[in-house]
């Protein structure tokens, strides 16, 4: 299916997209990314200050998708800095922690804010830490119906166990429009049909 690679070669086209990850502090934004990039999990990663940048290329049959990912700081006072990172983003991953009601409200506030500004073409509404079922505070249905109302992809993930992490980025990469020629400075046409709803709930 897909395979991550370090370098893109010239025979296939490379589409570059900007992705931003938003959500309350400690919901697992960096962990989701680390699981995706290195298939690792670590309880204690360094605090993300401002935002941390990662680039990753995914190979599809006929093309490459390069994701330039900004992993933002979650502390509330950093909210006013977030536009620096989400401005011009093609996709947004908005994360909450299924064991924290407050993180859900925060995630919903991010969706609202993005919708009022230039909303990214693809938004994913993600309930992380689905391995912590006994501590669950947010029912899957609550997250899913909110996501559907707001035309967001929806998944529950576990960065700790790796659940749905590859699928999340794969789905985003596929949902992004890549018909037209792109150069390094990506310029995508808006294609509302590219926003799909995905019902793959947590399987753990």
């Amino acid at each position: 299916m897909i395979e991550a690679i370090e370098m893109s070669y010239q025979s296939k086209q490379t589409h570059v997209f900007k992705v931003v990850i938003l959500g309350e502090s400690r919901v697992g934004k960096t962990s989701i990314l680390l699981r995706f990039l290195k298939n690792q999990f670590n309880e204690n990663l360094g605090t993300s200050i401002g935002a941390v940048f990662f680039a990753h290329t995914i190979e599809f049959d006929n093309y490459f998708v390069k994701l330039d990912i900004w992993d933002t700081a979650g502390q509330e006072r950093y909210d006013s800095l977030a536009p620096i990172y989400y401005k011009g983003a093609d996709a947004a991953i908005i994360v909450y922690d299924i064991t924290s009601q407050s993180s859900l409200s925060r995630a919903q506030a991010w969706v609202d804010q993005l919708e009022k500004e230039e909303a990214p073409q693809v938004m994913a509404f993600i309930g992380n830490k689905c391995d912590c079922e006994p501590q669950r505070k947010v029912p899957t249905e609550v997250g899913r119906s909110y996501a559907q109302e707001h035309e967001c992809l929806f998944m529950e993930t576990s960065a700790k166990q790796g659940t749905n992490i590859r699928s999340l980025f794969d789905t985003i990469a596929r949902a992004l429009p890549h018909q037209q020629q792109q150069d390094q400075k990506n310029s995508n046409t808006i294609d509302p049909s590219s926003r799909k709803s995905d019902d793959s709930g947590c399987k753990c």
Partner: peptide, 17 residues
């Protein structure tokens, strides 16, 4: 600029830490 970045992206962590 070629990559649509500014000093904000480069220097934020430098100024804070």
């Amino acid at each position: 600029s070629k990559f649509s970045f500014t000093a904000e992206h480069i220097c934020m962590e430098w100024f804070l830490t």
